[in-house]
Design a protein around this nucleic acid. Structure first.
Lengths: 141, 141
DNA sequence: CAGGATCCAGCTAGATACTG
DNA sequence: CAGTATCTAGCTGGATCCTG
């Protein structure tokens, strides 16, 4: 919606040293952008496709086998969404049969870092979460 | 599905030193856990609630005003889900009128770091993404 | 104040069939 | 091979009304 309601004052964020979490105020504009990314990242297939593509370029059906469980329709839609966001590059080779190679863009590659950080967090705390859930569910019924 | 298809050989992951992204192979078990977290993080309201709660404990309607746009039902559901996962603590004070304080647990606080990292990425690249989308949409029609 | 209970519109994602 | 088109079950999330 609003592109530059604030006078673009921050720029490089040099003021905060080591990812100052507490200073991450949730102003409407910032939140909207972050929420947008979170929605894409939290999407059921997007990150699985990105992580598969991280190993190198892949063709459509190759990717379909790699992700495992994804339907043809969902793979197409996911790839289109990723391409639209500039995270994935789609290269068509007009031959018979047609050949389409998908690969991560520089932007797509850079996304792997923060996502992987979340992945590490998830792995480190999944036991904790599982037991919390078990406890919660046990208290309920 | 399968809980231990591999003979539990990794264990503590001492082999990878500084969050080796490329070594993040997507084995079925790991992916499931990560996807699980991604789903919660990518949920429309969860992270907004967590970030609001980051400032300190809050009561229900206080939180409702803070998040802005969330319905009563969704706030209740989101808080329950966060509580179930052990990310949020719910403290009831039985008085009239009733008082319920919500706060982040240690686990919830620790989640802010990787999420904030994603937030930083989102802010740094949102212009890039926006122009990629504009270009894509222009090519389409 | 802090929800629980219902009802419902809209989107998501899977299955299936067809095509250049 | 790499899609597109269609149909539909199911989940998500909002609105509204009610309660201890």
């Amino acid at each position: 919606m609003e592109t530059t309601s604030a006078p673009a004052q921050e720029g490089t964020l040099l003021s905060d040293r080591h990812t100052d979490v507490t200073a991450d105020e949730h102003s409407p504009i910032r939140c909207q952008a972050v929420n947008d990314i979170l929605a894409r990242v939290g999407d059921k297939w997007s990150m699985q496709v990105v992580m598969s593509l991280a190993a190198g370029p892949m063709r459509f059906n190759e990717l379909r086998r790699a992700v495992d469980g994804i339907s043809q329709r969902m793979l197409t839609r996911t790839l289109r969404a990723l391409e639209r966001d500039g995270l994935v590059d789609r290269e068509v080779t007009p031959s018979v049969p047609p050949r389409v190679d998908y690969s991560l863009t520089a932007l797509g590659l850079s996304l792997r870092e923060p996502v992987a950080a979340l992945g590490v967090w998830a792995m480190e705390n999944r036991q904790h979460i599982d037991s919390a859930r078990a406890l919660f569910d046990a208290m309920e019924e």
